[in-house]
């Protein structure tokens, strides 16, 4: 019962704060609302049996990446608009954005609700009762960390190592790009 309530709470929070991310004039507000979104998502992850991911979401995303964003926003001293000046597009751009977004949502929703695997349109929720639960089994067997770490260091070992390489390249690239050129 509590889980259901929390699910709805986090969902609404994520969507609302996501909307605020897009609609706030001040980039700092946007960043902070995005942090809220990430926290909400992390809650949803927990409710969906992804405990380790939820933790990483908070630590890496909300903690590290978002701080980096905030840092850059403040470093560049953005967000000070004078009078009516904003970084929003004009009327045509807004109309296009709205139209595209609504259409996209309609299409995705239609796709999600019409999935064959989920029992077809309209009877989705009921048909899922008693579905297999591999994650729950893994959690019971290896614990929240081990459930993810098992496949990660087993069958996904090479991609995992490649990820480290990617991060290394990203670090080097970031330093090279952001370094102040000698005059």
């Amino acid at each position: 019962m509590i889980a259901d309530a929390l699910f709805y709470l986090f969902s609404v929070a994520a969507v609302v704060s996501g909307l605020f991310v897009v609609t706030r004039k001040n980039p700092v507000s946007s960043v902070l609302f995005l942090v809220v979104t990430f926290f909400s998502l992390s809650g949803l992850f927990v409710l969906l049996d992804a405990h380790f991911i939820a933790a990483v979401q908070v630590i890496v995303y909300a903690g590290a990446i978002m701080v980096l964003f905030l840092f850059v926003v403040m470093l560049l001293n953005l967000g000070h608009f004078e009078g009516e000046q904003t970084d929003f597009r004009g009327a045509l751009g807004r109309f296009a954005a709205a139209t595209v977004s609504v259409t996209l949502l309609a299409l995705v929703a239609r796709a999600v609700l019409g999935l064959e695997e989920l029992g077809g349109q309209g009877v989705v929720a009921e048909s899922l009762a008693g579905a297999p639960d591999p994650v729950g089994a893994a959690l019971e067997a290896r614990g929240p960390v081990g459930a993810v770490a098992g496949p990660l260091f087993d069958e996904y070992l090479i991609p995992f190592e490649l990820t480290s390489l990617l991060l290394l390249v990203a670090i080097v690239g970031a330093i090279v790009l952001a370094r102040r050129r000698e005059p």
Binding site: V100, T103, L104, L107, V108, R110, A111
Partner: peptide, 14 residues
């Protein structure tokens, strides 16, 4: 690009 995605998606879904 988004319109393209919409077109593809629309083709798949509808």
């Amino acid at each position: 690009f988004t319109l393209g995605v919409l077109a593809v998606l629309g083709g798949l879904v509808l």
